[in-house]
Amino acid sequence: MLSSAQIAQLELQLNKLFDQCQVVTAAVVATIDGHFCAQKQRANTYSLERLATMGSTLMSLGDTITAELKMGGCDNVISENREGIVVFMHVGRDLVLVTLTTQKNALGMLLSHTRRCVEELTKTL
């Protein structure tokens, strides 16, 4: 499990993500086995503890599918929906970052800022 200093780092980076990318509605970090670590959302809309666990499931399925197809590691899983987009990304070997937006045309923004956040998290943890 993460130390309180590491969780503070996660929260700092999520704050930065929200400052830099206005389309992000919510973000959550989980361990690879589905334990909630940190979250941020613009309004208190979602139960992000469940999303954290689902993030680990989705990334694991992504890894399993790409291994089956011999496509290398899974970088991210994208869920495009009628009322928004959800992006799942690995953070190093042990964490998963899930971000979401309710704007249907913001996939590029969401992906690029989520990727930048992952890079920052990987550097700092």
């Binding site: 086995d33 334990h35 070997r93």
Partner: peptide, 10 residues
């Protein structure tokens, strides 16, 4: 077997 095992952290 197709499995989705990951490292446990707890």
């Amino acid at each position: 077997v197709i499995n989705t095992d990951v490292r446990a952290t707890d």
